[in-house]
Nucleic acid binder design. Structure first.
Lengths: 221, 221
DNA sequence: CGAGCGATGTCAGCGAGCCGTCAGCCGCGC
DNA sequence: GCGCGGCTGACGGCTCGCTGACATCGCTCG
């Protein structure tokens, strides 16, 4: 699951990248307003963390442009402590949530989970599909109540498919969202991964759409 | 179980309400000092979360009035980060615990449970997981009733994991919360510490989630 | 002041698990 | 029946985390 980090303070950006990576996301960082707008407009992210004080192009302007262009990617804005005006403006411009700096990584992750979930239309951090239950908080998947250990990549794959259930996901999309666009593999690594996940979670969770990709059945979204 | 939330920042109040509700409490919010005092004095709550900077009537004054009137409802006060004076004053005025803002919902819930438990007459804040018992008050850990001496760092590690049981905690997060983000170690100090704690408390308390971190099984606290 | 001890960071080695690759097979669709 | 896309079992390189050993530091006691 890819997340765009638009933050010009290198230290904060590095912290964010690390925290996100450890939480299982793919973090892609930009430090410049123009870049941020371009990436957010052309790439598909699960969420965007946006600092309002970017050079070259202001965060609020970026956000407005995205929304005017029809982009509904959930956006979490970072604001300076106590600046209420900024927060209100941000919400008005279409932000899904805000977080005052300095912040705790854990809180950021919680809010991020929240807006990602909201945008996907789910209500809780636990999703059940048939016998399979996925708990984002524990980063744990269970089958009929029995916890099943998944490796990091297996978990990423499973959670991405489950979060986008009811929709066909192409191998290319999986590749990009599991590994990040920079180092996409051209082998059948995804297929192998799919196989391993099926072996652990049962063969019925993930269906193959020959020639198109994979799909987890669910609410017809 | 009803909890009164006295907080004038609407956003924080809303977050609190949501988090408390999800944790199974009934949250009732007031944003005004006079209202807070009245409600706390006439209604019966399991606990009260009190921001000190309320309009119309100061939080400390409210707290003192309650206590003078004989109200023993446990009170958790919210303070600004780093303002030690406020905390001391709050404890003196009869608060049961304090929490610096910004806070993590999980930690708030943990502390809330703690003071509720304490006020209900249970032997202070004791958590048992399998054979292991952790007493936060005495900073004492026991295995099958036998006290086990832990070094300061070992105790910090164990208590942090136990306090956040049911959730995967990354090595980075442990590093930050055990040492403080200023001097994070890049070595395998955490791994060594984990090993030492396991040797003393048994190998089953802390599970390793390769690639993610560590987790103590238990209810999602 | 020096010896002793406990606490803790560092290091190297090791074993397990992870994961990409490949080759061959299967089965769907034509 | 053929071809191609997908599946699977095997393998090996590699990383991660665990462990025992050692160095260092601070404290205490003689």
């Amino acid at each position: 699951m890819r997340v765009l980090v638009a933050e010009d303070d290198r230290r904060i950006a590095a912290d964010l990248a690390r925290g996100l990576t450890e939480a299982g996301y793919i973090a892609e960082c930009v430090a410049d307003g123009e870049d941020a707008w371009f990436r957010g407009d052309t790439e598909d992210y699960a969420a965007i963390i946006l600092d309002l004080g970017l050079p070259r192009l202001d965060g609020l302007t970026i956000l407005k442009r995205w929304r005017e262009g029809g982009r509904r990617t959930p956006v979490l804005i970072l604001t300076a402590r106590g600046s209420w005006a900024e927060r209100v403006d941000g919400i008005d411009a279409g932000a899904d949530d805000y977080l005052p700096k300095p912040f705790q990584m854990e809180e950021l992750l919680a809010r991020l989970r929240s807006i990602v979930r909201r945008s996907a239309g789910h209500a809780s951090s636990v999703v059940s599909i048939g016998d399979v239950t996925l708990d984002e908080r524990q980063m744990q998947v269970s089958v009929r109540g029995q916890p099943v250990p998944l490796s990091p990549l297996e978990y990423r794959l499973a959670s991405y498919l489950v979060l986008h259930r009811g929709r066909v996901v192409s191998q290319f999309e999986l590749n990009e969202n599991i590994y990040g666009q920079d180092d996409a593999h051209d082998s059948n690594a995804i297929e192998v991964l799919i196989g391993r996940v099926r072996k652990k979670l049962g063969p019925d969770l993930i269906e193959t759409r020959r020639g198109f990709g994979y799909i987890v059945p669910g609410d017809g979204a």
